[in-house]
């Protein structure tokens, strides 16, 4: 495996008095798609928010592209090259699609092709005719695409995707999976927190399983799909 792009070591975080993560470590290599799996409440969203600086970590270190980013402000972490797509999308409803992309826009990074508007619309064709529509009027699926496109407009080296498949109609999942694979092909590393196991399996090479705020498994996604007892014990998913 190449030099990790993002390295999380011994991360502890939580809300108010309640701890959620108890010393989580994981790595992410350039162009890699890692699925972060676990039941509701296992700490997936907390991990992503802490990595983004949105929750102050209580212990542990975050390294990104050779820099120590532990305890940095979110905007500095974003500028260092980490993109964040929140679970509830959080598009700016009063702004148009094009304006949402403009807010996310940052200069391109060395060694990565720039995500121009035309490339973004090629990645998410349904958005192209909507560029002048207010984001608040988009459907849930379109908002999800916009949220990802807005983050990509910042030309990140890595993207933290928090449950992008949640609440989407099944017919939208296939193009979404395609877009994530395209991103990876373009050299963007993706950490995908997901509940939908099949969706994760379709895009991820590697899986990190969280249970009760700690890493229960870190290995190939195929192992997770092959090992029913692992899935049952950590994810509570049969079938």
């Amino acid at each position: 495996m190449a030099e990790p792009l993002l390295a999380i070591e011994g991360l502890e975080a939580g809300y108010g008095p309640a701890p959620v993560l108890f010393g989580v470590s994981l790595t992410l290599a350039p162009g890699e798609v890692v699925a972060l799996l676990g039941r509701n409440g296992a700490g997936k969203s907390t991990l992503i928010k802490a990595a983004m600086g949105l929750l102050p970590p209580r212990a542990g270190r975050l390294r990104f592209a050779g820099q120590d980013i532990s305890g940095e402000a979110p905007w500095r972490i974003a500028r260092a090259g980490i993109g964040y797509v929140p679970e509830d999308r959080r598009v700016f409803p009063d702004l148009t699609v094009a304006e949402n992309l403009a807010v996310g826009r940052r200069p391109p990074r060395e060694g990565l092709p720039e995500w121009t508007d035309s490339r973004l619309f090629a990645l998410f064709p349904p958005l192209a005719p909507l560029s002048r529509r207010r984001a608040g009027l988009l459907s849930g699926g379109e908002q999800q695409m916009l949220a990802i496109a807005r983050t990509l407009a910042g030309n990140p080296r890595a993207v933290l995707l928090d449950e992008p498949a949640e609440g989407l109609a099944p017919v939208l999942l296939e193009p979404l999976a395609g877009a994530i694979l395209e991103m990876a092909k373009a050299g963007v590393a993706v950490l995908l927190a997901e509940q939908n196991l099949d969706f994760a399996a379709a895009v991820a090479d590697r899986a990190v399983l969280l249970a009760r705020g700690a890493v229960a498994f870190d290995g190939p996604m195929a192992r997770v799909m092959a090992d029913a007892s692992l899935r049952e014990s950590v994810l509570g998913v049969s079938a």
């Binding site: 099944p170 296939e174 999976a177 099949d198 969706f199 379709a202 079938a239």
Partner: peptide
């Protein structure tokens, strides 16, 4: 199963796409 719980058919489609 189709809308919410299971995604048997979808899984196959996604894997095929990949």
């Amino acid at each position: 199963r189709e809308a919410y719980l299971g995604k048997a058919g979808l899984a196959a489609a996604l894997r095929a796409r990949r």
